[in-house]
Measured scan of single mutants.
Amino acid sequence: MSGNGNAAATAEENSPKMRVIRVGTRKSQLARIQTDSVVATLKASYPGLQFEIIAMSTTGDKILDTALSKIGEKSLFTKELEHALEKNEVDLVVHSLKDLPTVLPPGFTIGAICKRENPHDAVVFHPKFVGKTLETLPEKSVVGTSSLRRAAQLQRKFPHLEFRSIRGNLNTRLRKLDEQQEFSAIILATAGLQRMGWHNRVGQILHPEECMYAVGQGALGVEVRAKDQDILDLVGVLHDPETLLRCIAERAFLRHLEGGCSVPVAVHTAMKDGQLYLTGGVWSLDGSDSIQETMQATIHVPAQHEDGPEDDPQLVGITARNIPRGPQLAAQNLGISLANLLLSKGAKNILDVARQLNDAH
């Protein structure tokens, strides 16, 4: 009898209710805020589980004197976190989706994509230029951005401005803007500013005609071990179906173009009346040469937790077992079709030249 009692006690200790789920994140304040929001949602869904947040620095956090596009290494903000995932030191990792490459290392998958916040870019102005827009900034004003995508589009749109690289986390960039006289304004992701509670610093939100956004911008991705079915089931509740389908289309477009950090590629997606609209573009580094096109596809946005595919093969690095396969494939095909259209119009040449120029500098 006593033996059975011990077995029952052991089973209770090993039951999922007692389990601590370890969540990996970057150390920056924004990353911690984003991770806290994901953990809060998981806690609400699984009140019996405990969650421990483990923060670590990544290569991208450490190399702050070089433009991201020049470092010449993929997975700048993800490699150390993936290493911890691989060694079973954490069970899942919360990322900004735009930091996750469209091809993940073997053994990993994006197990959830959370509801997207505003994906557009924002302009934050130096205190002396508050009330201005990019259009009304004085001639030769210097605007800071760490992104080739932003610089290429904005140089084309605002030729009277000069664009220079600015690195560091959000706090560091804002301090550089406010305390030094080098920059009249800087460009940042609206979602990051909003998550930090800095709505009052948003001086201008850039519309798609001015600057399309990065693939996955404004959404959070939760990376897990691809074979860890328990954790895949656990994080599945975080999937937002519309965000998922938009981001599958965007990531398929980028992957098929073979774009990345070192080339200016941008997108804009919208879901309306059962249609998914995808606009994508590529630019030369100075913005003088560009190709942009829009395509659409009829896609039914499923309700969360309709029964999805059981075999769960990944699409552009994403596993969404609780979302039907048909809409996911339709979104992926839309991204591939748009990429093929741009490639047929000469996108590869623009991107190759951009890559060579970026590598040469």
Score class of each variant (00 low, 15 high):
residue 154 L to T: 08
residue 208 P to E: 00
residue 268 H to N: 12
residue 354 A to S: 04
residue 353 V to I: 06
residue 244 L to E: 01
residue 40 A to L: 09
residue 59 T to P: 11
residue 177 L to Q: 05
residue 296 Q to Y: 11
residue 269 T to F: 01
residue 108 F to R: 14
residue 156 R to H: 13
residue 95 H to D: 04
residue 79 K to H: 12
residue 83 H to A: 13
residue 217 Q to A: 06
residue 138 P to K: 10
residue 57 S to W: 10
residue 288 S to L: 13
residue 113 I to P: 01
residue 106 P to G: 10
residue 316 V to K: 01
residue 102 T to C: 03
residue 179 E to K: 08
residue 250 E to S: 02
residue 124 V to M: 13
residue 232 L to W: 08
residue 62 K to T: 01
residue 278 L to Q: 15
residue 290 S to V: 08
residue 66 T to M: 11
residue 262 S to H: 03
residue 76 L to Y: 07
residue 62 K to H: 02
residue 208 P to N: 03
residue 292 Q to V: 07
residue 45 S to T: 13
residue 187 I to M: 08
residue 281 G to N: 00
residue 311 D to S: 06
residue 311 D to N: 12
residue 340 N to T: 10
residue 357 L to Y: 11
residue 136 T to Q: 10
residue 318 I to V: 14
residue 70 K to S: 07
residue 151 A to V: 11
residue 221 G to D: 03
residue 74 K to L: 06
residue 106 P to S: 13
residue 192 G to H: 01
residue 247 C to W: 03
residue 265 V to G: 04
residue 345 K to D: 05
residue 312 D to I: 03
residue 273 D to G: 01
residue 235 V to S: 02
residue 174 L to Q: 06
residue 151 A to E: 02
residue 153 Q to N: 01
residue 249 A to S: 14
residue 93 V to F: 07
residue 226 A to V: 13
residue 135 E to T: 11
residue 355 R to V: 13
residue 82 E to P: 01
residue 177 L to Y: 00
residue 169 N to Y: 10
residue 238 L to A: 01
residue 359 D to C: 14
residue 308 G to L: 11
residue 41 T to L: 09
residue 181 Q to P: 05
residue 296 Q to V: 12
residue 188 L to E: 02
residue 157 K to L: 12
residue 53 I to A: 06
residue 58 T to C: 12
residue 343 L to Q: 07
residue 343 L to S: 06
residue 130 V to N: 13
residue 80 E to H: 07
residue 94 V to F: 04
residue 234 L to F: 08
residue 244 L to T: 14
residue 292 Q to G: 08
residue 319 T to E: 04
residue 227 K to F: 03
residue 62 K to M: 10
residue 112 A to H: 02
residue 298 T to Q: 08
residue 198 W to D: 09
residue 352 D to H: 15
residue 306 E to T: 03
residue 276 L to H: 01
residue 237 V to C: 04
residue 168 G to E: 02
residue 101 P to F: 06
residue 206 L to N: 03
residue 179 E to C: 10
residue 341 L to C: 07
residue 302 P to S: 05
residue 154 L to G: 10
residue 172 T to H: 06
residue 180 Q to N: 15
residue 352 D to Y: 14
residue 249 A to F: 00
residue 235 V to D: 01
residue 120 H to A: 05
residue 340 N to G: 11
residue 275 Q to V: 13
residue 297 A to M: 01
residue 304 Q to T: 07
residue 102 T to A: 12
residue 232 L to V: 14
residue 303 A to R: 12
residue 221 G to L: 04
residue 208 P to Q: 10
residue 163 F to C: 11
residue 249 A to K: 04
residue 134 L to N: 01
residue 141 S to T: 09
residue 44 A to V: 14
residue 167 R to K: 06
residue 148 L to D: 06
residue 330 A to T: 15
residue 278 L to F: 09
residue 308 G to V: 13
residue 186 I to N: 06
residue 346 G to S: 03
residue 194 Q to N: 06
residue 281 G to Y: 00
residue 210 E to H: 00
residue 338 L to K: 06
residue 105 P to W: 09
residue 218 G to W: 04
residue 91 D to V: 04
residue 163 F to E: 08
residue 305 H to P: 02
residue 263 V to R: 06
residue 111 G to M: 01
residue 41 T to R: 12
residue 201 R to Y: 15
residue 152 A to K: 08
residue 93 V to M: 09
residue 244 L to P: 04
residue 86 E to I: 13
residue 217 Q to N: 00
residue 117 E to M: 06
residue 255 R to N: 04
residue 118 N to R: 12
residue 155 Q to M: 11
residue 144 G to K: 09
residue 86 E to F: 09
residue 212 M to V: 04
residue 117 E to C: 13
residue 199 H to P: 15
residue 252 A to S: 03
residue 125 F to N: 08
residue 154 L to S: 06
residue 347 A to C: 03
residue 149 R to S: 03
residue 263 V to F: 07
residue 189 A to H: 00
residue 118 N to H: 11
residue 267 V to I: 05
residue 58 T to P: 02
residue 305 H to I: 14
residue 250 E to K: 04
residue 232 L to K: 13
residue 304 Q to A: 15
residue 141 S to Y: 08
residue 64 L to I: 10
residue 201 R to D: 12
residue 178 D to Q: 05
residue 152 A to T: 14
residue 164 R to C: 10
residue 125 F to S: 04
residue 176 K to G: 05
residue 42 L to E: 03
residue 43 K to W: 08
residue 85 L to T: 06
residue 146 S to K: 04
residue 56 M to A: 12
residue 287 G to D: 06
residue 359 D to E: 12
residue 161 L to G: 04
residue 194 Q to I: 01
residue 177 L to T: 06
residue 233 D to R: 09
residue 345 K to Q: 05
residue 74 K to H: 11
residue 205 I to P: 01
residue 107 G to T: 02
residue 234 L to D: 05
residue 189 A to Q: 03
residue 37 S to C: 11
residue 342 L to H: 15
residue 190 T to L: 13
residue 142 V to L: 10
residue 59 T to Q: 13
residue 287 G to S: 06
residue 98 K to V: 02
residue 334 L to G: 15
residue 321 R to V: 03
residue 133 T to R: 13
residue 234 L to Y: 01
residue 309 P to I: 06
residue 253 F to S: 02
residue 119 P to Y: 09
residue 68 L to V: 11
residue 344 S to E: 14
residue 333 N to Y: 03
residue 98 K to F: 00
residue 212 M to W: 02
residue 300 H to T: 15
residue 224 V to L: 15
residue 359 D to A: 15
residue 251 R to V: 08
residue 135 E to S: 08
residue 99 D to H: 06
residue 304 Q to E: 14
residue 78 T to R: 02
residue 301 V to T: 03
residue 214 A to N: 06
residue 138 P to N: 11
residue 168 G to W: 03
residue 140 K to W: 14
residue 218 G to C: 00
residue 165 S to N: 11
residue 188 L to H: 12
residue 207 H to N: 05
residue 245 L to Y: 14
residue 345 K to Y: 14
residue 53 I to F: 13
residue 258 E to G: 14
residue 86 E to H: 13
residue 309 P to V: 15
residue 297 A to S: 05
residue 179 E to R: 09
residue 254 L to M: 09
residue 239 H to K: 05
residue 87 K to S: 13
residue 150 R to Q: 01
residue 287 G to W: 03
residue 44 A to N: 13
residue 247 C to G: 08
residue 311 D to Q: 11
residue 87 K to P: 01
residue 233 D to Y: 08
residue 336 I to L: 04
residue 322 N to S: 07
residue 308 G to Q: 15
residue 43 K to V: 15
residue 167 R to T: 11
residue 61 D to V: 02
residue 257 L to V: 14
residue 212 M to L: 12
residue 223 E to W: 01
residue 189 A to P: 04
residue 273 D to H: 03
residue 343 L to F: 10
residue 285 L to K: 10
residue 237 V to D: 00
residue 53 I to L: 12
residue 232 L to C: 11
residue 226 A to L: 08
residue 91 D to Y: 05
residue 40 A to H: 08
residue 139 E to Y: 12
residue 176 K to Q: 14
residue 247 C to L: 05
residue 73 E to R: 11
residue 114 C to F: 08
residue 235 V to G: 04
residue 37 S to I: 12
residue 135 E to K: 04
residue 73 E to K: 10
residue 69 S to Q: 12
residue 142 V to G: 09
residue 201 R to P: 04
residue 115 K to L: 13
residue 302 P to N: 00
residue 348 K to P: 03
residue 256 H to D: 03
residue 151 A to L: 12
residue 146 S to F: 10
residue 297 A to F: 00
residue 147 S to E: 04
residue 268 H to A: 14
residue 233 D to S: 11
residue 206 L to A: 03
residue 213 Y to R: 00
residue 186 I to P: 02
residue 243 T to V: 01
residue 152 A to P: 07
residue 170 L to P: 00
residue 132 K to T: 10
residue 267 V to A: 06
residue 107 G to P: 02
residue 261 C to H: 00
residue 252 A to G: 05
residue 245 L to S: 00
residue 340 N to R: 08
residue 169 N to V: 12
residue 299 I to C: 15
residue 116 R to G: 06
residue 180 Q to T: 10
residue 47 P to N: 13
residue 150 R to P: 03
residue 44 A to G: 11
residue 90 V to D: 01
residue 133 T to Q: 06
residue 225 R to D: 07
residue 256 H to E: 15
residue 168 G to L: 04
residue 38 V to L: 08
residue 92 L to T: 08
residue 64 L to A: 15
residue 37 S to D: 05
residue 203 G to R: 04
residue 219 A to R: 03
residue 276 L to N: 00
residue 358 N to M: 15
residue 241 P to A: 06
residue 145 T to R: 05
residue 333 N to T: 00
residue 84 A to G: 07
residue 142 V to F: 07
residue 72 G to A: 15
residue 292 Q to C: 12
residue 180 Q to P: 08
residue 340 N to H: 02
residue 204 Q to H: 13
residue 318 I to G: 07
residue 310 E to P: 04
residue 49 L to H: 10
residue 334 L to T: 00
residue 187 I to Q: 04
residue 101 P to H: 12
residue 316 V to H: 03
residue 212 M to N: 00
residue 212 M to E: 04
residue 292 Q to M: 13
residue 346 G to P: 00
residue 130 V to W: 06
residue 175 R to G: 08
residue 163 F to P: 11
residue 263 V to M: 06
residue 282 V to R: 01
residue 72 G to M: 09
residue 205 I to R: 07
residue 40 A to M: 14
residue 189 A to S: 08
residue 145 T to Q: 04
residue 159 P to C: 13
residue 354 A to T: 14
residue 157 K to I: 10
residue 127 P to D: 06
residue 351 L to T: 13
residue 49 L to E: 00
residue 77 F to S: 04
residue 86 E to P: 01
residue 253 F to E: 01
residue 61 D to C: 03
residue 263 V to D: 03
residue 338 L to D: 00
residue 100 L to E: 13
residue 315 L to M: 09
residue 206 L to P: 05
residue 301 V to G: 12
residue 174 L to C: 12
residue 67 A to N: 05
residue 161 L to W: 07
residue 327 P to S: 05
residue 261 C to P: 00
residue 307 D to E: 06
residue 310 E to F: 00
residue 282 V to D: 03
residue 209 E to T: 03
residue 38 V to E: 04
residue 247 C to F: 07
residue 188 L to T: 11
residue 104 L to P: 08
residue 216 G to C: 13
residue 207 H to P: 12
residue 40 A to I: 08
residue 47 P to M: 03
residue 252 A to R: 05
residue 330 A to N: 13
